[in-house]
C-alpha cells in the first residue's frame, strides 16, 4: 500500500500535518508546501520501489517490506544518511530518523482518513477515475474548460 495525492484537491489546510503529528507522538512526517499563492501540496514518503534511504542506511534500519519502506527504530543510530539520500527530502532526522510508516496498525493512514478535501487516497484507481471523469466532461462540453 502506498498513497496518492490528488493535487487539484489540496486546500493547504495542514490537517494532515497536525493529524500525523498527533498520532506520532508530536513528530509528524508530512509537510504541506505552498507554491506562491496558487497551490499547496502535502509532501511525504513515496515508499519508493528502489528506496535510496534504505540503500544509504548502514544498519538495515530502513528496508522494504512489501510496498512499504519500513523503519526499525531499534536499529537507527541517527546518522542522517537516509535524510541526505532521500530525493524528495521527506525522511527526517532529529537525533533519530523518522518517516511515514503508513500508520502501521491503523486501518488507514491518518492523513488519508482526516483530509477534509478528500485529496489523499490509498486507491490509485480512484484518482485515475476522477481524472477520466473530468476529461470526459471537458470533451462533452467541447473542451471549453
Amino acid at each position: 500500500m502506498a498513497f496518492y495525492v490528488d493535487i487539484r484537491r489540496c486546500i493547504g489546510c495542514r490537517s494532515c500535518e497536525v493529524a500525523c503529528e498527533r498520532v506520532h507522538g508530536g513528530r509528524g512526517h508530512v509537510q504541506v508546501h505552498f507554491v506562491g499563492d496558487s497551490a499547496s501540496v502535502p509532501l511525504f514518503c513515496h515508499h519508493c520501489e528502489e528506496a535510496s534511504c534504505a540503500t544509504a542506511c548502514s544498519f538495515g534500519a530502513l528496508f522494504k517490506e512489501g510496498e512499504r519502506t519500513a523503519f526499525d527504530v531499534e536499529k537507527c543510530t541517527g546518522c542522517g544518511l537516509c535524510s541526505l539520500a532521500c530525493p524528495f527530502g521527506v525522511v527526517w532526522t532529529d537525533k533519530i530518523a523518522h518517516k511515514c510508516d503508513l500508520c502501521d496498525g491503523r486501518p488507514e493512514p491518518t492523513c488519508v482518513a482526516t483530509c477534509p478535501a478528500d485529496a489523499l487516497s490509498t486507491d490509485f484507481d480512484l484518482l485515475a477515475r476522477r481524472a477520466r471523469s473530468r476529461a470526459a466532461r471537458a470533451a462533452a462540453q467541447g473542451g471549453r474548460r
Binding site: C13, S15, V18, R22, P116, D118
Partner: peptide
C-alpha cells in the same frame, strides 16, 4: 474518526485534530 458521519465522512480539519 467517524467515517459514517454525514458531513465529514470521518475527515477533520487541523483545528478538529
Amino acid at each position: 474518526y467517524m467515517p459514517d458521519h454525514p458531513v465529514g465522512e470521518g475527515a477533520l480539519c487541523s483545528k478538529g485534530n
